[in-house]
Design a binder for these strands. Sequence first.
DNA 1: CATGGTGTATTAACCACTTAATACACTATG
DNA 2: CATAGTGTATTAAGTGGTTAATACACCATG
Lengths: 130, 130
Amino acid sequence: MRRQFNQRDPIYLQLIDYFREKLVSNQFKPGEELPSRREIARQFNINPNTVQRAFSEMEEMSWIYTEPHRPSRVTQNTELIQKIKKDFVRRAVETFVSSIQTIDISYEEVTELVEKELSKRNYPNGGIKK
Amino acid sequence: MRRQFNQRDPIYLQLIDYFREKLVSNQFKPGEELPSRREIARQFNINPNTVQRAFSEMEEMSWIYTEPHRPSRVTQNTELIQKIKKDFVRRAVETFVSSIQTIDISYEEVTELVEKELSKRNYPNGGIKK
DNA sequence: CATGGTGTATTAACCACTTAATACACTATG
DNA sequence: CATAGTGTATTAAGTGGTTAATACACCATG
């Protein structure tokens, strides 16, 4: 659970991103209980309300659910998790393409640069991470 | 010169991006005179100080230069323009790769998605834009 | 039944940052 | 030489948004 938050982006967004990463990389069992807001706040040394903010948004997106007076749980909808993953990638691709298309550069150059950057980060072919 | 600014990002940053695009796509002659701050402000219907803010930052980055009491001019350093272009692409690639590497996805899938998105936007191979 | 932890709601404080107002010296133009 | 436009600096105002404080009802545990 050790992770530093940068000082640039809102903490609650970084929290959401943190959970997204765990979600799409199967680090959660479906329906798994999450630590309480206050517990997480303690671990990250942030305000409980900030955690609540993140939880609210994740609940809004159905990433988690909370029965009254029960700990929040990770969604049991595995299709949703796949969708989160797909949407995330799609959005990243769109943002990327949208920005580079203002540049006069060939497709081959682009993919070569992407490939280079991927391998630079020890990202072997085949999708086995780290 | 018609372009709408979104209401999400700071205007001065969108202005800078606007000039970056013109700069790297050779829509400026080296040393070309730029319209005055107030003129640009009128065209975009924004505050002259906002233009000045953008100009300051572009001057800081040496994209433009301003002799005392003269109109600002586009840099004559063509190598710099190449560097701006390269840096911009490099940063876009880094951001992109950095985000998708939190996802369990193969390199082939990534490049395929990028290729798809590029062609969807009428981006023919070979780098001939639009 | 008391105590401490929980999810949640409301409100306030804060805060970085962008944008705008204003002023000034200078220059070109007539 | 007057007028209008320019680059620039300083300062104020505004603003959207995040974070924090506080409170409340509820529940489990002893």
